[in-house]
C-alpha cells in the first residue's frame, strides 16, 4: 500500500504536545479560500517548476510535490525524531490536506506508530463520513479538529462544502469523549465577529468537557505559495486580525469556561 505524502516536517512545535513530526497527506475535500497548503489540495502528485538561484542565474528545476510512500517508509522517516519525542512527550501528527482522504493509508501508518509507542495526533477538517472519521479518530491520542463556521451556507461559500457533516463528527467526538482541541481559524469577513464566535462557542459543551479551544489568527504567509504555484488567491483583500481582536475572541470563549490558547 502506498499513500501520497507531500511533506514530512520535523521539529513541529505548534500542533500537539511536545516536539512533533508532521506528516502531510495529500488531498482535501475542502477548498478553503484562505488555505495555507494549496499544494496539498489535489490527491495526486503534481509536477512544478521551481526557480532557484545558481551562480548569478536562475535555474528552473523540476520538482514533484507529493511522493508515494509505504507506511513503513513514513514510519522510518518519522522515527528519525524519536529522541525528540522522548525528551518532550511529542509524537507524530497526521495533517494535510486531509488525512481522512487516505483513510486506509493513515490507518496503516497509525498502526505502525502505535506499535512504536508513539503519541499520535490527527489534524482534521472533520469533513468525512462518520465511519471513516471514526476509524482514525477513535484511535488517535489527540484530535485537532478544525471548526470554521457554524452556518452551512457560509461554510459552503468559503470552503466548498456544507458544515453539517463537520458538526456531526464534532458532536459525536464530544459525546464519545475523544481528546479534542477545537481549532478555529479567525478570519476577518468570514467568522471574526462577536456574534459568530458566540454561536460557535455554543456548539461546544460549556461544562464537563475536557477539550480545549485553539484560536488561529489568519496569516497572509501563504500568499507567496499561491503565486509560485500560479494559483489565484481568494483572500487577497483580507487583513490579519489585530492582537486586540484575537484577545477579544479569546475572551468570548474564556468567559464561557473554555481553556483557550491562541496562535499555533
Amino acid at each position: 500500500m502506498k499513500g501520497c505524502v507531500f511533506d514530512i516536517r520535523h521539529y513541529s512545535v505548534h500542533d500537539g504536545p511536545g516536539i512533533r513530526t508532521a506528516v502531510f497527506l495529500k488531498g482535501c475535500p475542502l477548498r478553503c479560500r484562505w488555505c495555507h497548503n494549496p499544494e496539498g489540495l489535489e490527491p495526486e502528485p503534481v509536477e512544478v517548476c521551481r526557480e532557484r538561484p545558481a551562480g548569478g542565474k536562475t535555474i528552473r528545476l523540476a520538482e514533484t510535490i507529493g511522493k508515494l510512500m509505504t507506511p513503513a517508509e513514513v514510519a522510518e522517516e518519522v522515527m528519525k525524531s524519536r529522541i525528540f519525542f522522548e525528551e518532550s512527550g511529542g509524537g507524530v501528527t497526521f495533517t494535510g490536506g486531509e488525512p481522512l482522504m487516505q483513510v486506509e493509508f493513515t490507518e496503516a501508518c497509525m498502526h505502525l506508530m502505535e506499535t512504536g509507542n508513539i503519541h499520535t495526533t490527527l489534524d482534521t477538517c472533520g469533513y468525512a463520513l462518520p465511519d471513516v472519521y471514526n476509524r482514525i479518530a477513535a484511535r488517535a491520542n489527540l484530535i485537532l479538529f478544525d471548526l470554521k463556521h457554524y452556518d452551512s451556507g457560509i461554510h459552503q461559500r468559503y470552503t466548498g462544502v456544507p458544515s453539517g457533516p463537520v458538526l456531526a463528527n464534532l458532536r459525536a467526538s464530544i459525546e464519545a469523549g475523544f481528546p479534542l482541541i477545537v481549532r478555529i481559524p479567525l478570519i476577518p469577513g468570514f467568522n471574526l465577529s462577536t456574534d459568530t464566535l458566540i454561536r460557535m462557542a455554543g456548539i461546544l459543551p460549556a461544562t464537563g468537557w475536557s477539550g480545549q479551544v485553539n484560536l488561529l489568527p489568519y496569516h497572509r504567509i501563504a500568499m507567496h505559495k499561491y503565486e509560485k504555484l500560479g494559483l489565484g488567491y481568494g483572500m487577497k483583500d483580507i487583513r490579519q486580525p489585530s492582537a486586540a481582536e484575537v484577545e477579544q475572541a479569546a475572551e468570548i470563549f474564556r468567559e464561557r469556561g473554555f481553556v483557550v490558547t491562541t496562535g499555533g
Binding site: 521539529y11 512545535v13 511536545g18 516536539i19 529522541i83 525528540f84 522522548e86 525528551e87 518532550s88 490558547t261 496562535g263
Partner: peptide, 17 residues
C-alpha cells in the same frame, strides 16, 4: 508563545543526550 522555551530546552537536551 511560552511553550517555545520549553521545546527549545528539549531540543538542547536531546542534542546533549
Amino acid at each position: 508563545d511560552e511553550t517555545a522555551i520549553v521545546k527549545l530546552g528539549q531540543l538542547i537536551r536531546a542534542y546533549f543526550r
